[in-house]
Simulated assay, not measured.
Amino acid sequence: MADHINLIKLSVGSESVADIAHWQKHRSKQLKGGQYYHLTRMWPKREADLLNGGSIYWVVSGVLQCRQRVLRLDEIIGKDGIRRCGLILDPEIVLTEHQLKRPFQGWRYLKPEDASRDLPAHRASDEAIPPKLSAALAEIGVR
């Protein structure tokens, strides 16, 4: 049994993994110490498990396509005085095998055994498959 847990999150507004990378690179308001953080209202109760090698898996256009390792969790107090969680992410975006995912709100825990496998290094530079084709392939079990 794995000793870590992952998160899964919809990347709302993104149409590709390149969109995620562009968003994070140009989102200067969400940089802390030069690293991008994803802001969330809820603090993961399984923080220790998440920080023991966990990643956030991104769902783009209904298909799980990539992940980023979660490096740490930082407390961020908004202008409204509310405490939020800043998920400090590794800048490296790792492409994964595609997996169809239904829409959901917020983030969810993702067990390692349910997570998509990383693409082999020789496939990491493959041209991105259009989202509709990727979804169709994932639906029939072709990753």
Rank of each mutant, 00 (worst) to 15 (best):
P131A: 00
M42N: 07
I20V: 11
H4E: 07
P103Y: 15
S28I: 09
Q105R: 12
D3Y: 01
L119A: 01
M1F: 14
H26Y: 13
E139H: 14
D74Q: 11
Q68V: 05
Q68S: 04
L119D: 03
L64R: 09
V70N: 06
H98P: 07
S61P: 08
R27G: 08
G81D: 10
R46Y: 15
Q24K: 04
R102V: 14
H38K: 02
W58F: 14
L95G: 13
D126T: 02
L110H: 08
D80A: 04
R108T: 15
A121W: 05
R84S: 10
Q99G: 05
R69W: 01
R69V: 14
H22N: 09
Q105H: 15
L133M: 09
F104Q: 13
L95H: 15
H122G: 09
H38G: 02
W23S: 05
D74V: 12
N52D: 12
C85G: 07
E92I: 15
T40W: 02
R123G: 04
K79N: 11
L95T: 10
F104C: 15
S16N: 03
K111E: 09
T96V: 15
M42I: 12
A135V: 02
K9P: 02
L110G: 04
W58E: 06
E92F: 10
L73H: 06
R72E: 10
P91E: 10
L100Q: 03
I8G: 08
P120V: 08
Q68Y: 05
R46P: 03
Q99K: 11
W43L: 13
S14D: 10
P131R: 00
L137Q: 11
R69F: 07
L110Y: 01
A138T: 01
S14T: 11
C66V: 01
W23E: 01
D80F: 05
M1E: 14
Y36D: 08
L89G: 02
L137K: 09
M1N: 11
